[in-house]
Simulated assay, not measured.
Amino acid sequence: MKLIQAPGLPAPAGHYSKAVEANGFVYLSGVLPQRGAADPASDSFDTQCASVFDQCEQILHAAGCGFSDVVQCTAYIVGVANWPLFNAIYARRFGVHKPARAVVPVPELHHGFSVEVQMVAVAKP
């Protein structure tokens, strides 16, 4: 098992890794919007999604992968009403690539955020 660290991103606040490479796959932990000086939970849903996908891209690149290598994505979103906007943002980020996906509406997420995403990608040899 190889631990993946993403330069430029803060270290995880809990007892976990940003990502782990094992058995030919890269497993990204759940990614919340990046915390900045202001309260990120007050950012719009699309701004939070942009932050999450930017971080996922950085983590994937640190592992030698990209969005085209993602085989599965799970998204947790607060409120089913955000589903169409999430779907549009997701489609822009992935383009023609369509990995397996689950979108799970939830009542709340940690720190008051509105979106959390985890992914699995095929590792590059």
Rank of each mutant, 00 (worst) to 15 (best):
T47K: 04
T47I: 10
T47G: 10
T47P: 05
T47D: 09
Q48Y: 09
Q48L: 08
Q48P: 06
Q48V: 05
Q48D: 00
Q48N: 01
C49S: 02
C49M: 00
C49Q: 02
C49W: 01
A50T: 15
A50I: 12
S51Q: 10
S51M: 12
S51N: 10
V52F: 04
V52P: 00
V52R: 09
V52A: 03
V52S: 00
V52Y: 06
V52K: 08
V52W: 06
F53Q: 03
D54E: 15
D54N: 01
Q55C: 04
C56F: 04
C56D: 05
C56Q: 00
C56H: 07
E57H: 13
E57V: 11
Q58K: 15
Q58F: 09
Q58R: 15
I59C: 05
I59K: 01
I59R: 03
I59H: 04
I59F: 03
L60P: 03
L60Y: 13
H61E: 11
H61T: 08
H61P: 01
A62I: 12
A62K: 00
A62V: 09
A62F: 11
A63I: 11
G64M: 04
G64R: 01
G64Y: 03
C65L: 04
C65D: 09
G66D: 08
G66W: 03
G66S: 08
G66Y: 02
F67C: 01
F67Y: 02
S68P: 01
D69H: 13
D69V: 10
D69M: 03
D69C: 00
V70E: 05
V70S: 00
V71S: 05
V71Q: 04
V71W: 00
Q72D: 06
Q72T: 08
Q72P: 00
Q72M: 09
T74Q: 10
T74D: 01
A75E: 08
A75C: 15
A75R: 00
A75H: 02
A75P: 06
Y76R: 13
Y76L: 11
Y76K: 12
I77Q: 04
V78M: 14
V78P: 05
G79E: 12
G79R: 13
G79M: 11
G79Y: 11
G79W: 08
V80Q: 14
V80I: 14
V80M: 14
V80A: 15
A81D: 11
A81N: 09
A81P: 00
A81M: 11
N82K: 11
N82W: 02
N82M: 00
N82F: 07
N82I: 04
N82T: 09
N82L: 03
W83P: 07
W83M: 13
W83A: 15
P84E: 14
P84T: 02
P84N: 08
P84M: 03
P84H: 02
L85E: 02
L85F: 04
L85S: 15
L85T: 14
F86E: 13
F86C: 07
N87P: 02
N87C: 14
N87F: 07
N87K: 13
N87L: 13
A88Q: 03
A88D: 09
I89F: 10
I89Y: 07
I89M: 00
I89L: 03
Y90L: 05
Y90D: 04
Y90V: 13
Y90K: 03
Y90A: 02
Y90G: 06
A91M: 00
A91K: 01
R92D: 07
R92N: 09
R92H: 08
R93C: 15
R93I: 12
